[in-house]
Design a protein around this nucleic acid. Structure first.
Lengths: 129, 129
DNA sequence: CCGCATCCTAAAGGATACTG
DNA sequence: CAGTATCCTTTAGGATGCGG
């Protein structure tokens, strides 16, 4: 894997850009509980609907459908229908969706390193209360 | 600003680490709508409760309190009380919280670059429907 | 196999009033 | 100023059943 754009940018002296409502709403639609897991799964390759369902514990069909529709609408995911009978539907990461991959990896990595300290903070907080 | 750990890691051939429930829950508690704005604001320096309130449009006192408590419990934010009358309460980013800063910047930057294409995808999707 | 429609419950969150 | 407490509305989302 080569140097990412993300890395370069965080190293420049970036002006304190303010988050606008539109930007936050996009993040909300892409980083929520189910979306994160869908994107994470699709990073490993295209998946059928029921494959995704099995890969993501506890997701209901309704939530998965809603999540996939929203990701598709936002251009993160492509939906490919094969008109056999019964139909086969495949979901894959779009090129735009792929630009999120490094970011998701970074997020996950951050949680992995932060979690021990977070756990300590939680114990401390709960003990004080 | 120097090279970030985040950048380095995404350049290593990382095994496909699976997101666990704990990791996702931490992200949920730290990247939600209000938390993101609180952290973003605190990146610029310590703030009083009502300063935060004014800085974050549409947040209610109840939501802000809940958000700050959760961030404090997770060790992201420190709460400093000065026992004057009336009391002064200051919130500041903890060291652990500071490790999120680059990540949030990256997220925001991603939205800024992706948004135009997302908008096109949305129009396309809505037109088809 | 994929997904929509309906019903229903639980949880998030706003409005308002009150306190140290 | 910085909250807590209460009430009440809105929304997310689970369960179930049907249809292409």
């Amino acid at each position: 894997m080569e140097e990412t754009a993300v890395a370069k940018v965080t190293t420049t002296g970036d002006a304190p850009l303010r988050l606008t409502r539109e930007h936050r709403e996009l993040l909300d639609q892409v980083l929520d509980k189910w979306s994160l897991q869908v994107l994470d799964t699709l990073c490993e390759g295209p998946r059928r609907f029921n494959e995704l369902r099995r890969a993501i514990p506890l997701v209901t069909q309704k939530s998965l459908t809603a999540t996939l529709r929203r990701l598709e609408r936002n251009g993160m995911v492509e939906r490919v229908v094969t008109s056999t009978r019964p139909v086969a539907v495949e979901y894959r990461l779009s090129e735009l969706g792929g630009t999120l991959q490094d970011l998701i990896d970074s997020l996950y990595l951050w949680t992995a390193t932060a979690l021990p300290e977070v756990d300590r903070a939680r114990s401390q907080f709960d003990a004080d209360a």
